[in-house]
Nucleic acid binder design. Structure first.
Length: 199
DNA sequence: AATTTGCCCAACCGCAGACTC
DNA sequence: GGAGTCTGCGGTTGGGCAAAT
């Protein structure tokens, strides 16, 4: 569905640009206290900022809202992201919803800059290991290694697509919960992964 | 010391579903 | 019921910084 007028309206290009200043943040928080963190165009119009509603929303969700955690993703969180990504694919908001205080943008960035490389390396190592186990000549066919790596990555992606069985995003949304809840989530995923191995 | 390169991450964009009138 | 508007999501971009040359 293409609605150019709507797109134009919600992208006031002159009013949406640039990094946020401390002063802008303050004004935004004050406006949200008055109008609530939902009516973004109302907030934007009344905050005294040269920003559009969606820019305000993004700033609030990613940096200003209470209980937000920025940076220092722990090993436990990283492990959880890896498992959830295996289950849910690139559904960053769903993954973020299961990591208290983390945002979809942060997880997406973390995945793109850290974890995707990590996974590629793991796949590469796995393929090399398999290669060495077979009776093929010792020299490695670099093209084949890359192809196999791609195949392995695609397989993981396909698996994640076919395993999106968790219906209802609010089912166990825990964005505002205690970080300790990561433990039960890990246990849940352990159970879940063993189920898939069994199946 | 100056320049180039590569990486990270905050912010933007397009799309699509939900909502309102 | 349909057009217009709002909101949320995921992909992408580009500025800033550190490391390498």
């Amino acid at each position: 569905m293409v609605r150019p007028s709507a797109t134009r309206q919600s992208h006031n290009t002159e009013a949406c640009r640039g990094a946020w200043t401390g002063e802008e943040d303050q004004k935004l928080v004050q406006a949200i206290e008055l109008y609530g963190p939902r009516r973004w165009n109302v907030v934007a119009a009344n905050a005294g900022l040269n920003r559009c509603g969606r820019s305000c929303r993004l700033r609030w969700l990613n940096y200003l809202r209470p209980n937000i955690k920025i940076g220092n993703i722990t090993d436990q969180e990283e492990d959880l992201i890896l498992r959830l990504h295996k289950l849910l694919g690139n559904r960053w908001s769903l993954i973020a919803g299961r990591l208290p205080g983390r945002t979809d943008n942060e997880i997406k960035n973390y995945w793109n800059s850290h974890l995707s490389k990590k996974i590629k390396l793991q796949n590469q190592n796995r393929v090399l290991k398999m290669e060495s186990m077979h009776t093929q000549p010792p020299e490695i066919d670099a093209v084949k290694v890359l192809e196999d790596n791609e195949k392995a990555t695609t397989k993981v992606e396909e698996e994640s697509k076919t395993t999106r069985f968790i219906e209802g995003d609010d089912l166990f949304h825990c964005a505002d919960e205690d970080p300790l809840s990561l433990e039960w989530m890990s246990k849940f995923l352990d159970l879940d992964e063993s189920w898939f191995e069994f199946a």
